[in-house]
Amino acid sequence: MAAGVKLPYLCISCLTPCKALFKKTEGDFIKLLECSSCGQTVDRYVECEKSIIFMDMMLQEIAAYRHILYNANNFTPQFYMKLAVSLVLSEGYVRWTNFAQGLSAGNGIRNNETYLYIMCILTAIEIGVFGTIITIYSWVKFPNRTSPPTYNALLLGQCGRLANIAAIIWYHGSSIIFQGLMLAFIFISSIQSTRAALHIGRTECATLITVAFIISMYSSNALQPLLIGNRKTRGALQELFL
C-alpha cells in the first residue's frame, strides 16, 4: 500500500484500517473477511438488517456505532440530516408541551405556537454547542488526524430523545423519573457514540461528555428567558412562521 493512502474501512473490534469488508464468491455469495491484526471478522454487521444494528446500538454495543460511522454505506448524509431535523422537532415539541401547560388561556394560539419555534431553536442551539465542544476537543487532541464523524456520532447518541414523543402520546403529563432515565440513556449513548468516533477511553470520554452536557444545557437555559421574554423576537417568529 502506498504511503499516505487512507483505507476506506475500519475493523470494528480493533480499529485497524481495512481495504474491504467482504469478498464475493461463486454464485454471488459473500464471505466476510477477517482482520489481519486481531483475527476477528472485520465487520459482522455487514449481513445484518438495520433493525438488528439499531437494536445493538440501543444496547450500547460500541461495535454497532463503529459500523454505522465508518463502514455502512447505506447511512447517507440525507439520513443524518433527517435525523437532525427529527431530533430538533421532537425535543422542541416536548419542551413546548411542558412549557405550554403553564401558559394562561389568554396568551392566544399564535403566541402559544411561537413558543414551539423558540423551543426548537433552543434545542438546535443546545445540540450545536454540544457538538462544537466535542469537535474542538478532537481538533486540539488530534491535530493531525483526519476529521472524525463527530456530528454524525452526536446525532446517533441523541436518538433517545425521539422516545419523548411516544411518552407524551402514552402518558399525558411530565414524569421526573422518566425524564431522568431518558437523560441518563442519552448520556450513556453519547459516551459510546463519541468513543466510536474519536477512539478514546471511557473515563476521558465520560469527562468530555459531562462538560459538553453542562455547557450546552446552561447555554440553552440562559437563552430561554431572553427569547421568551423578548417581544420583538416573538413578533419576528410570528411573521416568519405564522
Score class of each variant (00 low, 15 high):
Asn111Asp: 14
Leu10Val: 13
Ala105Arg: 11
Gln60Leu: 15
Asn221Trp: 08
Asn107Trp: 14
Ile121Met: 14
Gly92Leu: 01
Ala105Trp: 07
Tyr93Asn: 07
Thr132Asp: 09
Ile127Pro: 00
Pro225Asp: 02
Asn74Glu: 15
Arg231Gln: 14
Ile177Arg: 00
Gly108Pro: 13
Glu126Met: 11
Asp28Arg: 08
Val42Met: 03
Gly201Asn: 15
Cys11Lys: 06
Leu10Arg: 15
Asn152Tyr: 06
Ala212Tyr: 14
Ser193Asn: 11
Leu237Lys: 10
Phe29Met: 07
Ser219Asn: 01
Arg231Lys: 12
Lys6Ile: 15
Thr135His: 02
Thr150Val: 15
Phe75His: 11
Gly160Val: 01
Leu240Ile: 15
Asp28Cys: 04
Gln101Asn: 10
Gly4Ser: 10
Gln78Leu: 12
Ile121Trp: 09
Ile134Pro: 07
Leu116Arg: 08
Arg234Met: 13
Ala166Ile: 03
Arg161Ile: 02
Tyr45Gln: 05
Ile214Leu: 12
Leu183Lys: 08
Leu242Thr: 08
Leu162Met: 07
Thr150His: 02
Thr25Glu: 15
Ala153Cys: 09
Pro225Arg: 07
Leu116Glu: 04
Met57Ser: 09
Ile209Gly: 01
Arg234Leu: 13
Phe99Arg: 13
Ser104Lys: 13
Gly173Arg: 05
Tyr117His: 14
Gly173Tyr: 11
Ala167Met: 03
Ile186Ala: 04
Tyr137Gly: 03
Ala166Trp: 10
Arg66Cys: 06
Ile177Val: 10
Ile188Gly: 00
Ile214Lys: 02
Leu156His: 05
